[in-house]
Design a protein around this nucleic acid. Structure first.
Ligand SMILES: [Zn+2]
Ligand SMILES: [Zn+2]
Ligand SMILES: [Zn+2]
Ligand SMILES: [Zn+2]
Lengths: 142, 142
DNA sequence: GATACAAGCTACAGCAGATAGAGGTTCAAG
DNA sequence: CTTGAACCTCTATCTGCTGTAGCTTGTATC
């Protein structure tokens, strides 16, 4: 039986985060000692590791929930899991595209400023007026 | 004098968001009509456009606050503004790097799955075990 | 068995950066 | 003067945690 701190150390997840995952139903409710402390099995550790690794790969908690459900039914087809992963890949690709456009603009404005007074600052000039930009960048940057 | 909806339309910012910017002190408190509705000058429109454009380029509201302060004092050196932009560029570059590593892993796991049962799904296999990954990807993916 | 103290517990607040809705009021055109 | 779109405030919600306060439990050592 593992204490929550052990799960925390072995998966690199903060203790509060593990409790949070339980609260939102991503982790099963843990068993408790007589005094009320959580105790876990190895399978709980595995589940937490799955969650953490999926998070590191950028999956949302909702997607992870689906993936865990699928993972619990080994006889099913994995088409669903694959499509979640493909969707995630697509999102990552879109984000990279957006960021590359931002990078281009930022690079240009930084390069073009001679570092004189604010009144002639190219950086601020571009920020004031999108017409100074070469690319479109709709939506809010992230 | 411009109503809030006009600012909203002309900058592509939701009305609630403009009020939110006022609440957090990013926009100045607007003047009001006798009946309590906000009314703006052209300079407020400019300020909002600056904020929105900066957001589109990925700057945080805190950075934008600094940039606006600088922009209001045209006689200063622009070194500060430039360094904020360089910091932003750096952040964007880091994010691109992380996302490219994620993309690589996602692409590989999607490609390697034959689409059979969950039990043999490569996607789920990788998620279960980071040892299957080729790259490191610490921190949580975004 | 007593004691110390690390590690656990709950409950709640807060972060960024908005966005949505309820329920009521004002403005401006016709 | 009436209509109705646009405005108002206030509160709640979202994602994914993280931090704090104040208290209790578990365990190692004496
Ligand atoms: Zn400059
Ligand atoms: Zn632009
Ligand atoms: Zn598969
Ligand atoms: Zn991995």
């Amino acid at each position: 039986m593992l204490a929550i701190g052990t799960l925390s150390r072995r998966t690199g997840t903060k203790v509060q985060t593990i409790r949070y995952y339980e609260e939102i139903g991503l982790m099963n409710e843990a068993g408790r000692t007589a005094g009320g402390q959580r105790r876990y099995f190895e399978k709980d550790l595995d589940r937490l590791a799955f969650i953490r690794h999926s998070r590191q790969l950028g999956f949302s908690l909702d997607s992870i929930r689906e993936l865990l459900d699928l993972s619990d039914n080994p006889s099913q087809s994995c088409a669903e899991a694959d499509s979640i992963a493909r969707r995630q890949l697509h999102q990552v690709e879109q984000r990279i595209k957006r960021l590359q456009a931002l990078k281009k603009e930022l690079k240009r404005m930084v390069a073009e400023c001679d570092g004189d007074s604010v009144a002639e600052c190219k950086v601020l000039e571009v920020l004031r007026d999108h017409a100074e930009c070469l690319t479109e960048h709709d939506g809010i940057g992230a």
